[in-house]
Amino acid sequence: MDRARYGMVIDLERCTGCGACETACAQENNIPPSTPEEAAQGRTKSWMKILVQSEGEMPDVEVSYLPRPCMQCDNPPCTRVCPVHATYLSAETGIVGQLYGRCIGCRYCANACPYGVKYFNWQRPQWPQPMEEMLNPDVAVRYKGVIEKCTFCHHRLQLARDQAAFEGRDQVRESDYQPACSEVCPTRAITFGDLDNPLHEVHRAAQDPRAFRLMEDLGTQPKVIYLRKGK
């Protein structure tokens, strides 16, 4: 398989803040529901999270929605500080991966990330008894004490590669590998693909004049690109 640089373009003009991406992500990646106590403590895990900001006063109130997955930076501040190299930038896919089996739970990477995308398992994740039946068999369930974050559903990439190999193809097509959030978005606000592949839609979308990255001046080179609100 060739190298790829997977990235995402999120059109803020289309995002309605419906939250389907959050739910689909939680379902796809076996993110446990938090109890009311955990939620009150601010320990809800949302790999994909919609950040809402409202500005102004009536009658000129404006609200903006910003879906925020892991930025999958090309210059990630988190990988530098991990003492055991449990988080790493994959040269093959551009995805910043997380090795749950090696993480010692020091939370240094969480402090280093300026976007707040790293989530820590403060206690053992629990599902109410019958709900374990809906766990996705393709994704590991994390134990307490380790850090987790959005992985661009890279288990789907592995499935897509397997499927391609089975069918005798040597390329994974754009539609074969889409993370849960981009798949479920009802307005098609999220586009996902290989930023380096000129045939993929993200490649073109990333060059839209409305494009910007979050906190670009920090030099993290995020691969999640936003298109400014406004036509």
């Binding site: 530098r80 500080v81 991990c82 003492p83 055991v84 190299h85 449990a86 090696r102 993480c103 010692i104 739970g105 020091c106 939370r107 240094y108 820590f120 398992n121 307490k144 004490g145 380790v146 850090i147």
Partner: peptide
């Protein structure tokens, strides 16, 4: 810091998988 670790049983990973770029 060991008390602060999420997985203190893995603290030896610091030796086995030492990532020298980390200030820790």
């Amino acid at each position: 810091p060991i008390i602060d670790l999420g997985r203190p049983d893995r603290m030896l990973n610091i030796l086995f998988f030492a990532h020298m770029r980390s200030p820790l």
